[in-house]
Design a protein around this nucleic acid. Structure first.
Length: 528
RNA sequence: GGUGCGGUAGCCAAGUGGUUAGGCAAUGGUUUGCAAAACCAUCAUACACGGGUUCGAAUCCCGUCCGCACCUCCA
C-alpha cells in the first residue's frame, strides 16, 4: 500500500516513493529555544513524530533530523525597530543570562517535554550555533553562483531573489504582491525589499562570529570529510547568520542535498521554507526537499492562542491542572494534522476517557485467560484483527488520517470486549493492538494486574484486619506485596459482609490513585 | 486589501456525489453487596446560511455570514 501525502508545493496528494528503497529521510523544523514550547509547537512536533512512527510501522528505516534554532530569529529590520532584536537576546536580557545559557535551558526543557509526550528521538538535533561554518560555506556558494550580494561596506550578505525565478513556487506567493504588503521600513542596503539576509552584522548582538577567525572554523569538516577551509569573501564581516540559512545548511549536512520530506508548521511555509528552497537550490542546483508537509495551527477555545487570555498553554500548565502528557499527546494526535484543531480542556477530559477505554482493552488482553479459545472464536477474532490491521494502515496511508485510524482501533476494541478472546485469539489480538500503539504511543504496560481469587481464598484465614490495611494505605507507597495484603484484608471483609470496611479500603486506595475492580476471576488493580 | 484553508449532532472529530465513521458526555437497561470495567439502547435520517446543478448533494457550482492562516516574528 502506498503512502499518499499532501505536498504543500504541489497542493495535492501524491504517492510517496522514497529516494532509496525502504529508507526515508525527514527534516523537521524544530523549536526556537528562547522560551518554553507551548502546545501549538507540540502539535507540529507530534505530527512529525506521527510521520516518523508511521514510516517505522511500514517498515522503513527513518533518518530524522530536527534543528534547534538558537540564534538569528529577529524581525525584518532590527535597527529601525526597537522590538526587533534577536529573540534569544531579548530573553537573555530579561533573565539577565548569557544567551547561550538561555538556549541550553530552553533546549533542555524542550527535550524533557518532548520525551514526556512520547515523541521519539530523532537521529539528530543540530544546533544552529554549532553549524556556523556550514552556513558560511553555503553563503559563499550563493555568492559564487550569483544568488547573493554584499552591500558596500556593510559586511552583510543578502539573497538576491531576482536571481531565483522559482522564488514563491512553494508558497504560491508572487514577489510583486509581497512588495506591496511590506509594512516594515525598507532596509536601504537591499536591492529589492523582499531580498533577505543570509548574514547580518550588529555591534550590539551578543552572539557573533568572525567568519575569518580560526576559532569559528575549529572542528569544521567539509561534507567530503576534509578539514579544508573554503576561501571566503573577505568583505563578510563579524556577525551572525540570517533566519533561514541554518535549515538549508544543516539539512544538507546531515541528509544530503536531496532528501525525502521536510515538515513544519503552516506559518513556516512563507517566508522560512520558501527562503530555504532558494538557498539550498541556489547553492547546489539540486532539488532539495522532495516533499513538503505542514501542520495547521491549533486554536484554543475556538480562538487563536493568546497569552493575555491565558490560552498559550505549556505542557507544565496542563500537568499542573492534573492532565497527563499522554492525554495531551492523544488529543493533539487524534485530529488530522492538516485540519485546524480546537484545543480545549474538555477535549483533554474526553481524551482521558478515550485512553482509558483503549488501556482497559489492552490490559484485559494482557491478563487474558490462557484457556484455549474455541475454533469459531479464533476465526472470528482473526477476521476482526485482520480488519484492524487493514483499516488502521490504510487510514494512515491516506495522508496520516489519524482520526480514521483511531476509529478502526475503537471498532476493534468493541469487538474484543464483546468476544472476550482467550488463549491464542487473545495473543493475536494483543499483538495487533500493540502494533497500532507503536504508532499512537498512548498505552502503558504493567500498570494493572489481577490478584487471583484462588490465591485470596487460600490465604483468607491469615488476612490482616481492615485497620492494618488502612495503615498500609496511610503510609503511602505500595509494593505489589502490600497490594496483595490490602486485597486480602478487603477480601476477608467482603466475605464477612463487612462492606463498610471493604469500601473504606477501596476509598483509601483511590486516594493513592489505585483502583480495585472486583471481577469473577479475582481483584483487578490499576496503578496510577 | 491579496492569497489559501475551514464551519458536520450537547462537545471533539472522520467522511468530498448514492450503503450506521469513531470517541467523549448525558439518559435508561444488563451485570455488581455497592462500585469499576464491559455490554445493549436512546440522543443521531447531523452537515453555517441562501440559491443552483443532478435521478440523488455534507460532498459539485454561485452568493452571503463567521473562524483561522500567510502576505509581517510565530509550530
Amino acid at each position: 500500500m502506498a503512502f499518499l501525502l499532501y505536498d504543500t508545493r504541489l497542493k495535492q496528494q501524491i504517492e510517496f516513493t522514497p529516494t532509496k528503497p525502504s529508507r526515508v529521510s525527514i527534516y523537521n523544523c524544530g523549536p526556537t529555544v528562547y522560551s518554553t514550547a507551548h502546545i501549538g509547537n507540540f502539535r507540529s512536533f507530534l505530527f512529525a513524530d506521527l510521520l516518523r512512527r508511521y514510516f517505522e510501522y511500514r517498515g522503513y528505516q527513518v533518518t530524522q533530523v530536527m534543528n534547534i534554532t538558537d540564534v538569528g530569529h529577529l524581525t525584518e529590520d532590527n535597527r529601525a525597530d526597537a522590538g526587533g532584536e534577536d529573540k534569544l537576546q531579548k530573553t537573555a536580557r530579561e533573565l539577565g543570562w548569557d544567551p547561550f545559557k538561555v538556549a541550553r535551558h530552553f533546549e533542555d526543557g524542550f527535550h524533557a517535554d518532548r520525551r514526556a509526550l512520547g515523541v521519539k528521538d530523532a537521529e539528530r538535533y543540530p544546533r544552529a550555533t554549532d553549524h556556523i561554518p556550514e552556513m558560511l560555506v553555503q553563503i559563499q556558494q550563493l555568492l559564487d553562483r550569483g544568488h547573493a550580494y554584499i552591500p558596500e561596506n556593510s559586511g552583510e550578505v543578502y539573497y538576491d531573489i531576482s536571481s531565483f525565478p522559482a522564488y514563491g513556487a512553494l508558497s504560491g506567493k508572487v514577489v510583486e504582491d509581497l512588495e506591496a504588503g511590506a509594512r516594515v521600513e525598507v532596509n536601504q542596503l537591499k536591492r529589492h525589499p523582499a531580498d533577505f539576509a543570509l548574514w547580518k552584522t550588529d555591534a550590539g548582538h551578543l552572539m557573533q562570529w568572525d567568519p575569518h577567525s580560526d576559532g569559528t572554523w575549529s572542528g569544521y569538516l567539509s561534507s567530503s570529510g576534509a578539514k579544508e577551509r573554503p576561501a571566503l569573501d573577505p568583505r563578510i564581516g563579524k556577525g551572525f547568520p540570517g533566519w533561514h540559512i541554518e535549515c538549508s545548511a544543516m539539512s544538507s549536512r546531515y541528509l544530503g542535498e536531496v532528501f525525502d520530506i521536510h515538515t513544519g508548521g503552516e506559518d513556516n511555509i512563507f517566508p522560512h521554507h520558501e527562503c530555504e528552497v532558494a538557498q539550498a537550490v541556489g547553492a547546489t542546483g539540486a532539488e532539495y526537499a522532495r516533499h513538503w508537509m505542514h501542520a495547521r495551527h491549533l486554536l484554543v477555545n475556538g480562538r487563536k492562542m493568546s497569552k493575555s487570555e491565558g490560552t498559550l498553554y505549556t505542557l507544565a500548565d496542563l500537568t499542573e491542572r492534573g492532565y497527563s502528557p499522554r492525554e495531551v499527546r492523544y488529543l493533539l494526535l487524534a485530529n488530522h494534522y492538516r485540519q485546524p484543531m480546537n484545543f480545549t480542556l474538555e477535549g483533554l477530559d474526553a481524551a482521558r476517557a478515550s485512553i482509558a477505554r483503549l488501556q482497559n482493552c489492552h490490559d484485559l488482553l494482557v491478563e487474558g485467560e490462557p484457556a484455549p479459545a474455541a475454533p469459531e472464536l479464533i476465526e472470528e477474532m482473526e477476521r476482526v484483527t485482520a480488519a484492524l490491521e487493514e483499516g488502521f494502515g490504510a487510514a494512515l496511508d491516506d495522508d496520516l488520517n489519524a482520526s480514521a485510524a483511531l476509529a478502526h482501533v475503537f471498532d476493534f476494541v468493541g469487538h474484543v470486549n464483546r468476544l472476550k478472546p482467550t488463549g491464542r485469539a487473545a495473543t493475536r489480538a494483543l499483538a495487533a493492538l500493540t502494533a497500532c500503539d507503536a504508532v499512537l504511543g498512548v498505552l502503558r504496560a504493567g500498570q494493572s494486574g489481577v490478584i487471583a481469587k484462588e490465591e485470596l481464598e487460600a490465604q483468607v484465614g491469615s488476612a490482616p484486619a481492615p485497620a492494618v490495611a488502612l495503615e498500609l494505605l496511610a503510609a503511602g507507597a505500595l509494593s505489589v506485596e502490600d497490594l496483595k495484603r490490602v486485597a486480602l484484608a478487603r477480601h476477608a471483609a467482603r466475605k464477612a459482609r463487612d462492606f463498610a470496611a471493604a469500601d473504606a479500603i477501596r476509598d483509601g486506595l483511590k486516594a493513592l490513585g489505585v483502583q480495585f475492580e472486583d471481577t469473577p476471576s479475582g481483584v483487578r488493580y490499576k496503578l496510577p
